[in-house]
Design a protein around this nucleic acid. Structure first.
Lengths: 256, 256, 256, 256
DNA sequence: CATGAATGAGCCTTCATTCAT
DNA sequence: CATGAATGAAGGCTCATTCAT
């Protein structure tokens, strides 16, 4: 199940979520040039052609444009599909179908399914962080940060429910080759660390009573993650009220 | 992620859990899991289940008996496999392999993979309920019930970690044919209803302050469910202390 | 291109080539038995069921029967396909199609394409050895062995042209994961060692002149291998005459 | 496996072999293969071919020129790739990657993969013929021609092992659309005809005894072709000695 | 009741080829 | 002339399921 995103640091801007579906841009401009040099008339000379070769690093931004747009489109469709049918039922075929492209395109733009899934996770985590940052930065004190975290998180749930559903499914299923759970794909669970930090500060400031910050942080995140599930069961759920109630809950749980 | 099991009511008796694990007789004496790993190579083994019978029960229907024993064995092996490699990597072949039987047996005893998974979920839920019942029944008041719920739940996590891991994976992946999440497979989440009831009673008795019982119940269960994840990250986790901290957390969160 | 097979040792009997295409045989007989022991009437007893478990090693030959028959059938069809369309164009689908079975069957009986190909190579090598053995064993002296080798080899080419074509294609394409040639899959090239031995003996006996046995052995085998190619170009090629000419050639090349 | 090239007639000039390998000018100076491996990372490179021109040739058609240079570059890279990873593992993508160009370029300059492969074969055959011609032309008599053929062939193997490995792989896999072997792609096996001619002349001159010239020619070529395989197994193989031994072998085999 | 054999759909990936830019 | 993007077919493989024995 999903996960709170804490680190208010470098996230992708939310606009990225707005994926352009129609793309039509130029590409690299490596062309072939030729020169005839130093050939005195009537003497053997050398015709020198220089053939274009691909550079090792993408030199221009332009070329990344269409590439990135497609990748974004595919990632976006993957989010939709995962959220809708679940990780287990998600196949490249289904994603391609939703994107209206052929399976091969995905393989062309991503090294494989794993990379795509990884990108999806990072995409959602990035969006969530960016969304939550202002909520947290505005906070005057430690509990304000907790409140901001809760409200920001539920705000994102409301705004991009799909994304969190998808991420939750991915995290619940992310396993390495051995089948062992990968509990922290894409640093998603950084949230707990962030919360822990807030809680410690509150304790130091005397705003919070003594408690295990680890248990408290874990429980806050768990409570937030549980909301996606509630939303599925009751799509009409009032997230604003839910956020208020959670803030209240953890206010009583933490206050000195 | 897993789930708390509350209803202290009609669970399957705990012995059922033992059927496929404790084996008493036969020319070879293995537990179900030993049978695969520890069988002397080159010899066909025989898993021999002996089921306790009440003296004055009527003649037993053999068919039902062996049937049930097999089902229990398969369910038990399925739990192991799911906990180990994850739902997504769990195939009938792997389960059969672990049980030392052929794939066909599973299809014979279960209508399909779905039914097997369903049975696994019910099996774990039943065990968890039976395990938690005494914790809860001994409680003198509403918060005592909450405390019992938390302690019983974490006790079960400690005693049968595998089962909860498996259940968690199943619930995270349980989907109907359409791909929609089935948030309440096998009535597992009955837990929330039970908790809700306890909380209401506490409010009525004046032991608890006013709060949304739904949000509180959901958060308690979420906090409990999160523990499996913590256990994976840190297998040395002190569950007893964790339980104490959680009880403390929700004591402050609920008390009048 | 193909290869001579020297080692006159343990080959499969030629009959193996006659693959039964219709199969219908019994299988393992592991059934479930049950016993009620020592239950004095009216007292609690123990109903003891013993459930069948697969043994680790295949205990009976019967079970291998159908299995082996299918494997043989598939190997046989693979030979045909490879000989006909070439290694590069040979897919499991084509083999399955020729065998009138579904692709899955092949995967069921062989660990993968690699194992199948390996089996094909071993099958042909085994047949060739078995075929050539009597030719060589009857030889009175070193050159008699060379003669037997040549005649046996060309005899096998005539009798099972397909098999050598297939083997040749496999050997020409057998590469490990890195793409490096695997020059000696299934010990096929043991032939050179065998020839080398014959040649050394002839030199020791004074029957042969001095020469590099390695170069001579390699050339003999190469000359034999080239025959398959000639056969393709000219299906009417008189193999008996060809053998006589080759024997003559290497008689002059080796004689003291 | 490779093939001897006999016809000392119309081969492409040896320089062609050099076109894509020796590069003289340009801001960057790499050979074709270096360009991929040794290009300074992050900089676009330019492969610059300079083609020798006769002083009084008419104005060169640029189109043809650059076209030919590219084709030569691609053919050359194809040789490398085939020799390295084998025909079966050779894809246009891999060739393009080695050439530092995009896949499309290949499709642009060649009608398809088949034409490219055909060109590769012709390229190698042409080089081999050109290489061998002086060896053969210098011969005073029939056996001298045979000797020249053998020495020239092994000389080429030593000088351009890669090319023969590639050709061998191609010939072993060259099939038409139906999957039938194309035993004489690019007239490669013309070698047999050439040898046959030499042998007949020797018989007419009384230098050679009576034997089937076809069998003898085929065996000579086969013995030569086998050398590539020996080289793989033992890269330290002394080709000069090997040639001497082969000459000796066929001297005894043919002499009157 | 259990088995091994078989099926057929689906999965991910690779590939030669085409094409707008 | 070169490119990157896209396609669609095919490849090998896994899997849940069915079935005769």
């Amino acid at each position: 199940m999903p996960i709170g995103f804490g680190d208010p640091g470098e996230g992708r801007p939310d606009e990225l979520a707005a994926v352009p579906r129609e793309i039509s841009i130029g590409d690299l401009r490596y062309t072939t040039s030729h020169c005839v040099r130093g050939r005195p008339p009537g003497r053997a000379g050398r015709l020198c052609y220089s053939l274009a070769m691909r550079p090792d690093s993408k030199p221009v931004d332009q070329k990344t444009f269409i590439e990135e747009a497609r990748r974004a489109q595919i990632v976006s469709c993957a989010v939709e599909v995962i959220a809708e049918v679940g990780y287990g039922q998600t196949s490249l075929a289904r994603i391609a179908q939703r994107a209206g492209i052929s399976k091969g395109v995905i393989s062309y733009h991503f090294a494989g399914k794993d990379e795509l899934i990884q990108q999806v996770a990072e995409y959602v985590v990035g969006n969530a962080r960016a969304y939550m940052r202002p909520y947290i930065e505005a906070a005057p004190d430690a509990f304000g940060q907790i409140r901001g975290f809760i409200e920001g998180n539920l705000g994102f749930v409301g705004a991009h429910r799909e994304q969190l559903l998808a991420l939750g499914d991915i995290l619940a299923n992310a396993r390495d080759a051995n089948g062992s759970l990968m509990p922290d794909i894409s640093g998603a669970s950084g949230a707990i660390g962030t919360l822990d930090e807030f809680l410690r500060r509150g304790q130091k400031d005397g705003q919070f009573r003594a408690f295990s910050t680890r248990v408290m942080a874990t429980s806050i995140r768990a409570a937030l993650d549980a909301v996606s599930g509630q939303l599925i069961a009751d799509p009409e759920l009032d997230l604003r009220a839910y956020a208020r109630d959670l803030v209240d809950l953890f206010h009583h749980a933490t206050k000195a």
